[in-house]
Design a protein around this nucleic acid. Structure first.
Lengths: 209, 209
DNA sequence: GTAGTGGGTGCACAGTCGTTCACTGAATAC
DNA sequence: GTATTCAGTGAACGACTGTGCACCCACTAC
């Protein structure tokens, strides 16, 4: 039991992160109080400081954690499990994976969607930065797609940004539609169509020389 | 001076709306207190209730007001002032108008972007509903574009959703880049490219029979 | 001219907020 | 076996929260 001390600390830390994720589910980090979190966790308010120096610092930790989930999704998309060949196949597989991950990591995706626009400035910046990294990753993937050989790096980034934006929006819609499976199905179908439209458009695109 | 009484009331109401818009600029409605607003306006907290029954009701009023701005923008886009013919011309003119309106109605656009994801549930719903109406409007506009004659209504809605999503994202980026004109210019340029890409793709699209 | 309306006031209430400080006691290091 | 470290405690602080109530008085309707 040599690790018991640090284990306990880690357990409390996790409990704080989970409680915060729960409590700001339908408001925001900026409306989250240290005391609420402490009560939810079952510790005294001052004990919070043993783990985070402020709610904002907690928020940054949640950003890190949430993007681990999001990157896991990107990895799956890249692997393209069960993808049929062609743009339609890529679109179908990608959207399926997106929907799946959004359901399994509801709170993380919801957290990102919310705090991206409403969090404390430092949290907003951190999220913006992470999303930019995702766009860069996607851009290098797109460069491997047939038909993009002569694209400029700039155009690849712009297309990537468009796709990420559309998929973030899809994730948000799905989160808002939780509990209405028919609406969800329709949203997924729409996302598939959008992705195909964009890829079809991309196929016809030529970067300005 | 027969109107002085109602005029005064309206003036205070406006002051409350403006103060709220100011105060939640870098947090959110859910973190806005009635007392802050009252202090900013220069009235006693209880006087707030003469105008709104809660912060949430205030939020719904701000949604209405903000979408007046947004609809004014859509009207301008539809009018297409100074648009050259062709998709590139439409894209250029539309993005120019978007950037212009975002600057002129900074707070309204920022409010929508923020509360759409982080506001009280009723406010989120109201915004979602308004955006859906905008998408419908845009869909009927798109139906008048050459090349979309045989599109299904469903596909028009999906394309419209994609465009609105991309433009909302552009607006958010521009708001986040305030004070860095070079970044802003780049964002506008990217938005133009995205819009062209989407329209080029749309031209090649055929709805499934 | 008089009665009434209603926006704004001032006080009070019971809570909650973040943060301080001195503390306890069990797991740790040596 | 003893000394130390440190996650968690509990009371206390001054400030802020939403809301209820009685009140005032300029403007309004008649």
């Amino acid at each position: 039991m040599s690790e018991t001390r640090v284990e306990r600390k880690e357990r409390t830390r996790r409990a704080i992160l989970d409680a915060a994720l729960d409590l700001c589910e339908d408001s925001s980090l900026v409306a989250l109080s240290l005391r609420q979190v402490a009560k939810e966790v079952g510790i005294v308010p001052t004990a919070f400081y043993r783990h985070f120096e402020s709610i904002e610092a907690l928020g940054l930790a949640l950003v890190d954690e949430s993007f681990v989930s999001l990157r896991a999704m990107l990895r799956d998309v890249r692997r393209g499990d069960g993808a049929v060949d062609g743009f339609a196949g890529i679109a179908d597989s990608s959207v399926r994976i997106l929907v799946d991950h959004v359901h399994r990591q509801r709170q993380h995706f919801r957290f990102i969607a919310r705090e991206r626009a409403a969090g404390p400035p430092s949290v907003r910046d951190a999220i913006r930065h992470e999303i930019e990294l995702c766009e860069r990753e996607l851009a290098t993937d797109l460069a491997r797609l047939p038909g993009t050989e002569q694209w400029s790096g700039e155009d690849l980034r712009v297309l990537s940004n468009l796709i990420v934006t559309a998929m973030v929006a899809t994730a948000e819609s799905i989160l808002a539609a939780t509990g209405r499976p028919d609406v969800e199905r329709q949203l997924a179908e729409n996302a598939r169509t959008q992705l195909r439209m964009v890829l079809v458009g991309a196929m016809r695109w030529r970067s300005r020389s």
